[in-house]
Measured scan of single mutants.
Amino acid sequence: MTEYKLVVVGAGGVGKSALTIQLIQNHFVDEYDPTIEDSYRKQVVIDGETCLLDILDTAGQEEYSAMRDQYMRTGEGFLCVFAINNTKSFEDIHHYREQIKRVKDSEDVPMVLVGNKCDLPSRTVDTKQAQDLARSYGIPFIETSAKTRQGVDDAFYTLVREIRKHKEKMSKDGKKKKKKSKTKCVIM
């Protein structure tokens, strides 16, 4: 069974824990209790493949930012979460993405942009803004509501699919490099 290491990042209060708990335990946590770091595991079937999701729910508070490099190193894919009623959390996505790329030393890291709290009427981040940002990053965008469960499975499952595509691409690139290195030079 394939294991996928997913990391949920975003500013404090955007609903990272609520999304994760909704996926794992099928219930909505409405009281806000700032996370330092929590880890969850769940076995699911995605596109006919049974897999184990190892999900790291991270601290959004700035005082825990020193811990970010460590979990970013171990993560295979990242859910970059903002709240649709919090423009600052949307603007912060850029910083999370840049930090992930720096730590992973790669421009090509599996990510999904997630606009959470889409059940709320007080939207300050337009869907088109988020779609445009995701398009500019070359990553999928999904709106979710941890409260109603809308888009929750889709967000995590899409990230797994992005990781699969990335692994497939990397193995193809690896095979191309191996083929090239088999060419021999004969000096007579």
Rank of each mutant, 00 (worst) to 15 (best):
E63S: 06
E63H: 07
Y64A: 00
Y64W: 07
Y64P: 00
Y64C: 02
S65L: 06
S65Q: 09
S65A: 12
S65V: 08
S65G: 09
A66Y: 01
A66H: 03
A66C: 14
A66E: 06
A66V: 12
M67P: 04
M67S: 01
M67C: 03
M67D: 02
R68C: 04
R68L: 01
D69P: 05
D69T: 05
D69V: 01
Q70I: 02
Q70P: 04
Q70G: 07
Q70Y: 14
Y71G: 02
Y71V: 02
M72W: 01
M72D: 00
R73W: 06
R73C: 08
R73I: 07
R73E: 07
R73A: 11
R73Q: 12
R73H: 09
R73P: 06
T74R: 05
G75H: 09
G75Q: 05
G75S: 07
G75F: 06
E76S: 07
E76P: 01
E76N: 06
E76V: 14
E76W: 13
E76K: 05
E76Y: 12
G77I: 14
G77N: 01
F78Y: 06
F78M: 03
F78G: 00
F78Q: 00
F78V: 02
L79M: 07
C80K: 02
C80F: 15
C80W: 04
C80D: 03
V81K: 03
V81M: 12
V81Y: 01
F82D: 02
F82I: 11
F82V: 14
F82C: 15
F82T: 15
F82L: 11
F82W: 08
F82Y: 13
A83C: 06
A83P: 15
A83G: 15
I84K: 14
I84P: 15
I84D: 15
I84M: 15
I84H: 15
T87E: 15
K88F: 09
K88T: 14
K88R: 10
K88C: 10
S89Y: 01
F90L: 15
F90A: 10
F90M: 14
D92E: 15
D92C: 05
I93D: 02
H94A: 14
H94R: 13
H95S: 11
H95V: 08
H95D: 12
Y96W: 15
Y96Q: 04
Y96T: 05
Y96G: 02
R97T: 14
R97Y: 15
R97P: 04
R97L: 15
R97F: 15
E98V: 02
E98F: 02
E98I: 01
E98H: 04
E98N: 08
E98D: 08
E98K: 06
Q99Y: 07
Q99K: 04
Q99T: 07
Q99L: 12
Q99G: 04
Q99S: 06
I100T: 03
I100Q: 02
I100S: 02
I100R: 01
I100H: 01
K101D: 05
K101T: 10
K101S: 10
K101F: 08
R102V: 07
R102M: 09
R102C: 07
V103E: 07
V103L: 10
V103C: 09
K104Y: 06
K104I: 09
K104F: 09
K104T: 11
K104V: 10
D105Y: 05
D105C: 12
D105H: 09
S106H: 12
S106F: 11
S106A: 11
E107C: 13
E107H: 11
E107M: 14
E107I: 11
D108T: 08
D108R: 07
D108S: 10
D108F: 09
V109D: 01
V109N: 02
V109A: 06
V109E: 02
P110M: 03
P110N: 04
P110R: 03
P110I: 03
P110L: 03
P110E: 02
P110T: 04
M111I: 12
M111T: 04
M111K: 03
V112E: 00
V112L: 08
L113C: 07
L113A: 05
V114N: 01
V114Q: 02
G115F: 11
G115M: 14
N116T: 15
N116R: 00
N116G: 10
N116D: 08
N116I: 12
K117T: 13
C118G: 11
C118I: 11
C118L: 10
D119P: 04
D119V: 04
L120A: 12
L120M: 13
L120S: 13
L120I: 10
P121Q: 11
P121H: 13
P121T: 14
P121V: 10
S122W: 08
S122Y: 12
S122Q: 09
R123I: 12
R123D: 15
R123P: 13
R123H: 13
T124C: 12
T124S: 13
T124I: 09
T124L: 10
T124K: 12
T124A: 13
V125A: 13
V125S: 13
V125N: 12
V125Y: 13
V125D: 13
D126Y: 09
D126P: 07
D126M: 09
D126E: 11
D126L: 08
